[in-house]
Amino acid sequence: MKVMTIVNAVNDALDIKLGDDRNVIVYGEDVGVEGGVFRVTENLQKKYGVERVFDSPLAEDGIMGTAVGMAVAGLRPVVEMQFSGFAYPAFNQIISHASRMRNRSRGKYTTPIVVRMPYGGGINALEHHSESMEAIYGHIPGLKVVIPSTPHDAKGLMIAAIESNDTVIFMEPKRIYRAIKQEVSEDKFSIPIGKAKVLSKGSDVTVVAYGAMIREVQKAMIMAKNAGISVELIDLRTIYPIDRETIAESVKKTGRVITVVESPGSFSVASEISQIANEEAFVYLEAPPKRVTGFDTIVPLPKGEHHYIISPEKIFYEIERTVKF
């Protein structure tokens, strides 16, 4: 066991997979010499050489398109989008090819690509550095979308992502990149993609969240406890394929569900969870499924970001309203 942050854990997972599979290739902007602007790929070039870990030209669509080519030809590229807000040039390749190649070729070709991208707000950043666009990826048929909330999960899910024969969008909550430290096994282990995790058992209301929002929900749960409300917290961990079963089971038990996401609310993962609750547990519901989300606005620059960011108080406020409904 070793104490790791999410940064360390992803690095460790990459290290393990580079070590046990020579088809794994890691590249992107500034990932080689510098080891990434967040240091997630630190030392990997030194250890595995420039043929396997390298800096690409500043060209996201090129990075993604070459990854599709590499993958079809038999490699397992792990590419980095420096920030999720700069992945948009790569959209063409993600939507038009990476997500469709298997279906188009009737299974002859696969695209085992991992697209890593730091995402999310709360870090006092410049424009385009704070968005949470997971719903967009969740909406694209053919992609898996993974978001860890702890170092342990980050490592296990990253190993699973690299070993997956489908393209995985691996979104890293940069707000908690270094904020959470945890003992993580140094051995190779993986966590199945598509499985949510019940973090705390409770009986009054189910709260579903992921990424940096987990910590905020946990703060709200202290307030809830003081108010005598018992919360069941589910860490979704995978946006798609979504774990219907775990959500349904919990909502049937509590009769109430709140989803907390930092993205805009309309057409969000929260909308999807609400609908799953409606479909799977309608007769058990004692209150309308609730979404606690960012506004349908651009994330404000740092001086206005406090308006946008979801506070533990806001989460508690909605928990209380839902329970009292």
Binding site: E29, D30, V33, E34, V37, D55, S56, P57, L58
Partner: peptide, 11 residues
Amino acid sequence: YGISTPVSVQT
């Protein structure tokens, strides 16, 4: 440079 990447890596 583009951050750490020298122009020789760009073109």
